[in-house]
Design a protein around this nucleic acid. Structure first.
Lengths: 341, 341
DNA sequence: TTGTAGGCGTTATCAA
DNA sequence: TTGATAACGCCTACAA
C-alpha cells in the first residue's frame, strides 16, 4: 500500500546511486550542495516517502511510543495523552494507544505484544487489578524504556510522574474539616493502587492531625461496575453511621456519589460536603452544587513524560531513566460542594 | 531494543534452518508435527517474538490502523475508539491514535505522515475546519483504505458510518415542539460538517412540518473556544428574540448551554427546553435538570468500522470499500430538560 | 520434510 | 564527492 516511489526508483530517475540519494536526503556532509538540491527537488516531485519499516528494521527503532491506560473515557487520561502527543509529535513520533479496561490480563497481553520492538518506549498507568507486576518488571529488566504516571509501580526502578497525592489529599481533607466535617468518608478504587495508598495516607494523617479517627464503615472500596458503586455509596451515605463529609480519590467516584445522593434526600453541602480529585473542570462547575476539586495537572504530566522520553530516545547514549518520582502539584479549587452552612 | 532472540538464533538453537523454523511457527503443512512441537516449545522457552518491522517490510502491511479524530476529550470519540479497539485487537491489529484538535492543518500533516504505509488503513472523523478535502481525496485515489465515521466526507467514494442524523434531529425537534416549544434555537459547530448539515436539515424539516419557521438569530454557529461559545449562547438566550427551546447538535454545546443558563435566571425546562446529541449518559443524568438526549450508538459505530476494515484487510483480494453510507440509529432518551410544565 | 538463496527498502561501511 | 555492497529479520520460491 506504500504509494509513492522508493529510494531505488528515485535514484534511477536521478541517475545516482541509492546510497547517494539516501545521504543527500539525510543531509550528509559528504554530499555536494548541488546534488542535494537536485535530490530533494526530485524527491518532492515524485512524492518520495521513506518506508518506515525498512528504516525501523535497519535502525532498530520505531519512532513510536506506546501509551497504556486503564480507560479511555476519562478526562484525566484523555488530557494526559493530549500532553504526550503534543511533545512527541514535534519529534516525529507516533502514538500507539491501548486501554486495559482495568483488566490486568489485558494489560499483560498488551505488554507482551509490545516486547518485540513495535514501540520504543511505554508510558503507562497500571490497571486497578495490577498487583502482580512481573510483566512490568520483566519489561524493565530487559532495558525497555518504561515510564509510569499517576498509577505507578514503586517497585520498578524507573521514572514516575505523579501529582502531589499525599499533600493534596491532606489539604483536601483538612479543608473538609475546616468546613465543619467530623465524619469523613473515603472512596477509593483498588487498595493496590499507588494513588489510593498515597491519597488515603494524606486523608488519614489530616484526620489524625485534627484529632479525628476514621470510621471503618465509611471507607469504601469500589470496583468497575458503576451501578454497584452507586449502590454501595448510597448504602454508606444512608447508613446508621452516615458521614458529613466525603473525600473521593478519583473522578468517577465523585460522579457516582452525585448519582447516589440523587437517590436519597441528602443535601449537598448542608448534610454532606464533597471534595474529589477531578480533572474535568467544565463538568465540575455544572454539577449541582458545583464540586470542589483537586485539579490535577493532566496535560503537564503528559508533556513531562514525553519530554523525558524524547530526551532519552533522540539523543545518543543516554543513561537509563533514573529511578525517581517526579511530582507536579495539583490545585484545590473550592466550589459549592464544600461551603459551610 | 528488541529483547528476545531472532529467527536465526532460534534456528541455531534447534539445529534447524531458519526457513524450517519460520514455517513451523506459521503452522505450514510442509512441516512434520514433531518438528512443529519442538520449534514451538523452544520459541516459547526463548521467548521468541517475530520482529514486526521485518515482517511488515516483507509483507507490505503493518497490522496497524490509524484513527484520526478531532478531539480526545469527548465521550463520543473515546467510546468509538473503544469499539474499534475491541474488534481490531482480536485480529492482532494495533491502533495509532491522533487528535487534530479541530485543526485542518494538523489533519493534513497527520494524513501526509500516514501515506508511507505506517498504517494499513485510516478511520477518521474530519475536523470542523475541513472544507478543502484534497488531502483526503488523494489518499483515497491512491487506493489507501479509508473509512469515515460521524463527520464524513460525502464526496469521497468510500464507506461511511453515521447515526441517523436527519431522522434523530427531526424526531428530537418534533419532541420539543410537542412539549410546547415554538421558538427553537439550533446550536452547531462549523456549517461545513456533514453532521451539521444533516442535523440542521432534520431540525428545519420538523419546524416546517409543524408550520414553524426558524428564527435567524437563534441559529448559532460555535467555534473551538468554550468561553466564547458560552457567551454567544448566553447572549442569544437573553436576546429580544429569546427561544423557548434549544436543539444542540453536539454534546459540548449542550454543556456550554448549561453553563450559559447558569449565568442567567432562565429556568430549564420552564423557560427553555433542551435536547442534545449526547453520549455521556452518566453526565446527562447528573445535569440539573437531567438532559434529554439523542444517544448515539458510539461503541457500535466503532465496532462496525473495525469489522468492515478487518474483513477487507485480513482476507485476500477483497474489493474496495464500497461507496455507501451506513446508518446506525440513535435513541432519544427523555429526561427532565424537556418536560412540559 | 527440510535446506538454500534472494529480496522487501533502508543506511552504513568501504572502496573508488 | 559518489558508488557498490552488506546487513537489519523475515518469508517464500526453488532445490534437495
Amino acid at each position: 500500500m506504500s504509494t509513492g516511489v522508493n529510494l531505488k526508483e528515485l535514484a534511477a530517475e536521478l541517475k545516482l546511486a541509492p546510497s547517494t540519494v539516501s545521504r543527500a536526503l539525510n543531509d550528509s556532509y559528504e554530499i555536494s550542495e548541488a546534488t542535494k538540491k537536485k535530490v530533494v527537488f526530485m524527491a518532492e516531485k515524485l512524492n518520495y516517502q521513506p518506508n518506515p519499516f525498512a528504516r525501523s528494521l535497519r535502525e532498530n527503532k520505531s519512532k513510536t511510543i506506546a501509551v497504556i491506560m486503564p480507560e479511555r473515557m476519562s478526562s484525566f487520561f484523555a488530557k494526559v495523552v493530549d500532553g504526550i502527543e503534543e511533545v512527541t509529535q514535534q519529534h516525529g513520533y507516533h502514538l500507539l494507544v491501548y486501554s486495559t479496561h482495568e483488566d490486568v490480563e489485558r494489560e499483560k497481553k498488551i505488554v507482551s505484544l509490545l516486547m518485540n520492538g513495535r514501540a520504543d518506549a511505554i508510558v503507562m498507568s497500571v490497571s486497578s487489578q495490577t498487583s502482580d507486576i512481573s510483566h512490568l518488571a520483566k519489561l524493565h529488566e530487559r532495558g525497555f524504556p518504561l515510564i509510569f504516571f499517576d498509577r505507578i509501580c514503586s517497585e520498578i526502578p524507573t521514572t514516575k510522574f505523579i501529582t502531589n497525592d499525599y499533600e493534596s489529599s491532606y489539604e483536601g481533607t483538612k479543608h473538609l474539616i475546616q468546613q465543619g466535617c467530623r465524619k469523613i468518608a473515603f472512596l477509593m478504587l483498588s487498595k493496590e493502587l499507588s494513588i489510593t495508598k498515597e491519597r488515603y495516607r494524606g486523608y488519614l494523617d489530616a484526620l489524625q492531625a485534627a484529632g479525628l479517627s476514621p470510621t471503618p464503615s465509611l471507607q469504601v472500596t469500589c470496583a468497575h461496575d458503576e451501578e454497584k458503586n452507586i449502590e454501595a455509596i448510597r448504602a454508606m451515605l444512608t447508613s446508621e453511621d452516615r458521614p458529613d463529609g466525603l473525600f473521593s480519590s478519583v473522578e468517577k467516584l465523585a460522579l457516582a456519589t452525585y448519582h447516589a445522593v440523587k437517590r436519597t434526600d441528602i443535601k449537598i453541602p448542608q448534610d454532606l460536603k464533597i471534595i474529589s480529585f477531578f480533572s474535568n473542570l467544565s463538568i465540575a462547575g455544572l454539577l449541582t452544587p458545583s464540586l470542589t476539586t483537586i485539579t490535577q495537572p493532566t496535560f503537564e504530566i503528559g508533556e513531562e513524560c514525553a519530554k523525558l522520553l524524547m530526551k532519552k530516545l533522540t539523543k545518543p547514549r543516554q543513561p537509563d531513566l533514573p529511578n525517581q518520582v517526579i511530582s507536579i502539584p495539583s490545585k484545590i479549587i473550592i466550589r459549592s460542594s464544600t461551603i459551610a452552612v
